[in-house]
């Protein structure tokens, strides 16, 4: 082994070196597997395919540099917290640069399929006929679920993505979003109600031929 030939004072430095190598290896094992989750969250938060990839890369670099501060616990919640922060930075940048109104209000302006969700009433289709039961009967296609999710206000979209897609516990969601656990529960309840309403409106507006 190389350290056998080192002068005595080199000992700690070699250990530091080895610690770095071990840290990098542990990062590979512990954090890298969450790349899909990181991208999923970044994609749903930003609503932008290109930005999502930039956010993920930035988040992973930061996570790699700060990995020494990771104190165990949920590695997934840890990396998703960093992704969330990187998204906030990205959006602040966007707004500074463009000096326009918040992205939230325009993120789907260019998505024609999405306009349907905004039509709440149609004269030729009495609302009473669309009961929650018929929603159940109707199989929701994955790409339509994506569209409805994308149209939810950010806080609710985030809660549903973390819970239903990433399967985080309330406690982990509370850690990622810095909101109390009780608020996580009420936000999810509200998010599902909003999702169901948006879905109902989509049905009422009639499906687009595909």
């Amino acid at each position: 082994m190389s350290h056998a030939v080192l002068p005595a004072e080199g000992g700690t430095e070699v250990r530091t070196e080895r610690a770095h190598a071990e840290g990098a290896a542990r990062f590979q094992d512990v954090i890298l597997p969450h790349l899909d989750a990181a991208h999923n969250l970044a994609r749903y938060l930003s609503g932008d395919a290109t930005a999502a990839e930039d956010i993920v890369q930035e988040a992973y670099l930061r996570a790699f540099r700060a990995f020494g501060q990771f104190r165990g616990g949920s590695s997934k919640a840890w990396i998703l917290t960093i992704v969330r922060n990187c998204h906030l930075n990205w959006r602040a940048d966007q707004q500074r640069r463009a000096n326009i109104e918040p992205l939230e209000s325009m993120s789907h302006a260019d998505d024609p399929a999405f306009e349907d969700a905004d039509i709440s009433e149609r004269a030729d289709l009495p609302r009473e006929e669309i009961t929650p039961e018929t929603i159940l009967a109707q199989r929701m296609e994955a790409d339509e679920v994506r569209l409805v999710l994308a149209g939810l206000p950010e806080a609710f979209r985030e809660a549903l993505v973390l819970r239903e897609l990433e399967c985080l516990s309330y406690r982990e969601i509370s850690d990622v979003t810095s909101i109390p656990i009780g608020t996580v529960m009420s936000r999810l309840a509200r998010a599902r109600a909003i999702f169901a309403t948006a879905w109902r409106q989509r049905l009422a507006a009639g499906k687009k031929p595909r």
Partner: peptide, 16 residues
């Protein structure tokens, strides 16, 4: 049912 619908395959965006 709603939870299932959201959690179905192809709703997530995996990393390319």
């Amino acid at each position: 049912a709603l939870k299932q619908a959201i959690a179905q395959d192809q709703v997530s965006w995996p990393a390319s």
